[in-house]
Amino acid sequence: MSSMATFGRVSQSMKAQKQLGIAVRLVIAVILIIFSIFPVLWIVSAAFNPANSLASARLIPQNAGWDNFYILYPPADAAVRTWSANLFGRDIFPPIPPGRFVFPFWTWWWNSIKIATITTFLVLFITTTAAYAFSRFRFAGRQAMLKAILLIQVFPNLLALVAIFLMISQVGDIIPWLGLNTHAGLILVYMGGAMGINIWLMKGFMDTIPRDIDESAMVDGASRWQIFWMLILPLLRPILVVIGILSFIGTYGDFVLARILLKSTEQYTLMVGLQIFTSGQFSQKWGAFSVGALMGALPIMVIYLALQDQIVGGLTTGAVKG
């Protein structure tokens, strides 16, 4: 009996200890969460702060308002104004109040989305076709090539940025629309990284798809390309989503290659534009920057949080961002 009582007491104290442990950990969690979301809260509040300067920024701004959101006002963008003027025959938008810092947000945003989307689809195409060959065929040099792909990852083309810059400027001397300051040239450079480590991930996934599918289709007279396109590709959906999203996010957030290759304001991606915009008179443009940063980060945050589990699954099996 007494041993039972002791056991009861022990388990009770253990339970109390456990609950205390959870409480302590919850407090730590709150502190960590403050650390992790403070910059985000800060940028949200700066976006609504009409003072537009770093010095007067506070967490709960006085006279909160939408003044900084003028950068999202489409006619703040010269391209939009020209377009609408052509459409309607005259400038129909009311002018922007003087003293507002504006930058061509939508042009930059569109450039980023366009470049990231095209890059992602091309990367997916290159990755899946190459992974299909690695998974389904046995040929001389197959192992060596798979290993080489892994090794070359160590030297991303960002390292050779001087060479990339000189090379693209040479290409531009021959074909201007592929040279410096063009989106096509930048996408080409991104393509260099397409034969990446993601091929391993994709190949691993394909290896789990039984080969019987291929073989029975082949008996029915389907060509290799038909098998790949009509049978295998639909089965790859989950992994395509993960690799596609990570590639999109990586390209969308790339800075240095876009920075050295793109030269004129209307060609910038959002990341390059935001950086250049903030590099001069930084403290005076804080409000406008905040709105741009918030709007630029929003699509990516939404994608991440909505598809958290899939992305985490991809990351832990070795997919890379970018």
Binding site: F125, I126, T127, T129, A130, Y132, A133, F134, F137, F139, R142, I152, F155, P156, N157, A160, V162, A163, I164, L166, M167, L188, V189, M191, G192, G193, A194, M195
Partner: peptide, 24 residues
């Protein structure tokens, strides 16, 4: 013929990753 499936990716890799290393 199996290499045909990856010839585009290989070309890009040679031109934009390997060549820049040598060019550097």
């Amino acid at each position: 013929s199996p290499v045909r499936w990856m010839v585009a990716g290989l070309s890009f890799m040679i031109i934009f990753v390997i060549y820049p290393i040598f060019f550097t």
